[in-house]
Design a protein around this nucleic acid. Structure first.
Lengths: 233, 233
DNA sequence: ATAATAGTGTCTTTCAGACATTATGAT
DNA sequence: ATCATAATGTCTGAAAGACACTATTAT
């Protein structure tokens, strides 16, 4: 065999970040209206081809996040790679899906370049139940991303990435409840977070509520924390 | 934008299964000596290009496993996708790594087609410590696969996929110990497995040892079981 | 003062881990 | 009979879940 490239060895390849945030205790996904074929006019994930100037996949994804959200150093993890001859009418294609979690206020939509149509937050629910039609396999990808978020939220601090830089334990609990779709006892939740020692209590408090709760911030930026036990469902 | 294919949109793509088994309480990886460039003569994972007759990635991987091991319906899960301009001298390439776990006796090497060089079990240790040099990024991929296996073994029944159809709890415990690199208390381990109710005790026993232990088989073939707590390390 | 939310402490349950005791099969 | 391993039961400790009670802030 020679080391030249055989056309049967190549495929269409893209990366697709599922960028999620919480708005009014409901998960939303960042999407853009497609301005080109295929699936022109439908909503799609803000992904696309990798910039081959990047030296690896994660760097390519980080660049895409920067372009679509204006943010760098936001949380993301690789989810799953989909390959099929049915995803894209142009042929056998492969896409690697990522999950990225952000706080909604961290994105400054006004500052984004106008080059294409602006991204928008659309409710996760309306994607999963099919009310909003998505391009390619993006409905499947978003559903899988949500399932991953849900199951990892049972034993990791993943939802903490949805928080603003300073947040209360109650806000974090709301995030868990929104993701898991069930209520969590206030005291047990606080004990769990307290004993994990992954957040730092600041001397600031959140004003405006009844008894002002302390604000916390995340300790390190190195990977997820795994709780020794699952939250029981 | 037209819907024709632009050459910058395509990449070299392959799937690479990390097939692991236990031989004498040591993890081994299935590898083949490469007979073509690049990296001719080095060991590599038994992967390669996807057969575009397959309708999706998992099916393509299942076909590859069938070709390389003669087995279908063995356990596999997708691990991670690597993309870089440094993996393959021919250009920007992408590969999706899978983890597959088998019992060593389930592969009949004699029955495999002779088309290329036969696959062989090589000790995981000699890959990780660099004593055996691997093609592409296969050392990295194998190391990552081992890390995933180790961390998932703390809270899932993943190692059960390394067992023969009938196995004892002691054998399963040896597998966990080999993966985790530490001893586990016999009684706690048995209780954990017993209460999970994921294995069925048969009326057969394993002869040859002192007190004959009962043989178990796996209950269902649907996904992994997640234990409510982690094994403490 | 009242309402609402936060923090603390107690009790129960579950399960890991350690250890002792009993049971059983190979020799 | 002896030995090695399996099975069973008891105790301790960690952490979840439930719940009562106290503390603090806005109104």
């Amino acid at each position: 065999m020679s080391d030249s490239i055989n056309p049967v060895d190549i495929v269409l390849f893209s990366v697709d970040p599922v960028i999620m945030t919480l708005i009014d205790d409901n998960l939303h996904v960042l999407a853009v209206k497609r301005t080109s074929e295929p699936f022109k006019g439908l909503w799609g994930l803000p992904g696309g081809r990798v910039d081959k100037a990047c030296k690896n996949l994660d760097e390519a994804l980080a660049l895409k996040l920067k372009q679509k959200t204006g943010l760098d150093s936001i949380y993301f993890e690789q989810l799953q790679t989909y390959g099929s001859n049915e995803m894209d009418p142009r042929g056998w294609s492969v896409t690697t899906a990522y999950l990225s979690l952000v706080h909604k206020d961290s994105i400054d939509f006004i500052a984004l370049p106008e080059s294409h149509s602006r991204p928008e937050w659309i409710p996760l629910k309306s994607v999963v139940n099919g009310k909003i039609e998505m391009a390619f396999w993006h409905k499947q990808i978003i559903s899988d991303a949500f399932e991953r978020l849900k199951s990892k939220s049972l034993y990791t601090d993943l939802p903490a990435n949805l928080m603003a830089p300073l947040f209360t334990i109650a806000t974090l609990r709301s995030a868990y409840e929104a993701i898991l779709g069930c209520e969590l006892t206030r005291q047990s939740f606080a004990k769990r977070m307290e004993s994990a020692n992954i957040f730092i209590k600041t001397d600031k408090v959140e004003l405006g509520s009844h008894r002002a709760p302390p604000l916390y911030r995340k300790r390190s930026r190195g990977g997820n924390y795994y709780f020794p036990r699952q939250l029981m469902d």
